[in-house]
Structures are given as C-alpha cells and as structure tokens.
Design a protein around this nucleic acid. Structure first.
Lengths: 108, 108
DNA sequence: CCCACTACTCGGTGATACCGTATAGCGGTA
DNA sequence: TACCGCTATACGGTATCACCGAGTAGTGGG
C-alpha cells in the first residue's frame, strides 16, 4: 500500500488511544502492534510524538518500569479524559466514514 | 458534529475528486454539495485551495464560463491523471477504513 | 445606493505525521 | 575487548493539509 500519511492524520492518534485502552502498554510495543494491524509504515518516532502529545494533553497516566531486555519502558494507561477522547474519536470516525461511504456509493 | 478538521486531511481532496468525476462543476457549487452531504463546516476557502492544488498538479481540466447570477465560474473536469488519482484514493480509503474498523471491533 | 448573494484568490496559521539523529540498556560473538 | 543487533525513548526540523480572513468582482433587489 502506498503512502497513507495524509489519510492517517487525525486517525492515527485515535488508533493509539484504542490500543492503550485495551491494555497498559508502551511505545515500542504499540508500534509493532500497529505494524501487525496493517499500518505497516508507521515507525517509532511517529508513535512517540503521539504519546508525548497524549501525555502533554493529560489523557494518559504514565508509569516507568524496567525492561530486562533493554532500557526502561514507559507504560501508558488512559484516564477519564482519555476515555472520553477515545469515545469522541469513534463518534467522529463513525460520522465521517458513513458520509464518505455514502458519497462513494453515489448517494447524491 | 464537532471539529472534523484533522480527520478530513487526506480525505476531503478525494471527496472533491469524486464530486467532480460525476459531473463538471465549480467551486461554489462543490462547497454547497459538500455541506449537503454532511460536511457542514467546509467553507469556500477550503474548497478553492483544493481546486487550485488539483489544477497545479495537473489532475483536472478547467473551463471558465459566464454565470448570469455573478462572476464567471471555473468548471472542473477530471482528466486521466485525475481519474487515476481518484481510483487510488478509494483504494487507500478502503484499505484504511477496513483496518480501523477491525481495530474498533477488537480484531487483535 | 447600499446590501445580499454569488464566485474566486491569496497570504498566513495550526495541527499532524514523518524523518533523521542521538542516547542508552542488553545480549551475543569474534 | 570491541562490535553489532535488538530494544526503547527523545527531539529538532520538514511537508502537507484544512482553515481563516481579507480582498476583489458581478448581479439583482429593497
């Protein structure tokens, strides 16, 4: 699949929120998970910028834990504000994708 | 619906391409059509920047015609490159939306 | 004669994903 | 010991995109 960069804007952050919501996890593992999910070209740097933004915006709780196989990991978990943000993301996604699919089907 | 700006990045241009593909039309009318389709907050300025970009990238043919109710209109039609771009847009959209919906359904 | 509606242009802004580089811990291997 | 690869995070800079605001114009009605 060729470049999805522009289309990911506004959705990748939501995907990261969704992943965090299912289990407390950390940047490197989130990147691998996204790659496995089909977001093949997403790299660590991109995910870390998102995580730092989530932290700056007060949507997550952060816990640093030693790794055993490398440097310490920063584990992320959603707080109430984060869960609210995630719910809002899915609402928007639902809205947008339904409109676009209608346009695609010639709903005009 | 609250702000969709970020989520529209990369998709709004595709929507404009799709609209143009069904009939030769112009900026002001495209904006009204988008508004009717549920993209309520999209304004003229945004659509015009997209149209100028399409023209600059050689994806459309432009014809200026007098209006009768205002200044002349610039009518846009897709050329071969534009149709190819549109097909690529739908391929990407299909790919991305399927991955995101899988993520949403807990496909992990 | 002003105002509303139609119609397009253009410079600047903010948000986002991405890139490259740096730092650092750990284990294997030559 | 020295090097490499994998794990793990941070950060400055870039490109792209949708958006905003102000400006320019044509038409018709109160």
């Amino acid at each position: 699949m060729d470049d999805l960069t522009e289309m990911l804007k506004g959705t990748l952050e939501g995907c990261v929120l969704e992943i965090i919501s299912t289990e407390e996890t950390y940047g490197y593992a989130i990147t691998r998970q996204l790659n496995d999910l089909g977001f093949a070209d997403v790299v660590e740097g991109t995910v870390y910028t998102i995580l730092l933004r989530l932290e700056r915006n007060g949507l997550v709780e952060v816990t640093k834990r030693p790794s055993g196989v490398g440097p310490p990991r920063k584990f992320y978990a959603l707080n109430d504000a984060g869960r609210e943000q995630l719910a809002g993301f899915w609402t928007k996604w639902q809205y947008l994708s339904s409109r676009i699919n209608k346009l695609k089907e010639g709903g005009r």
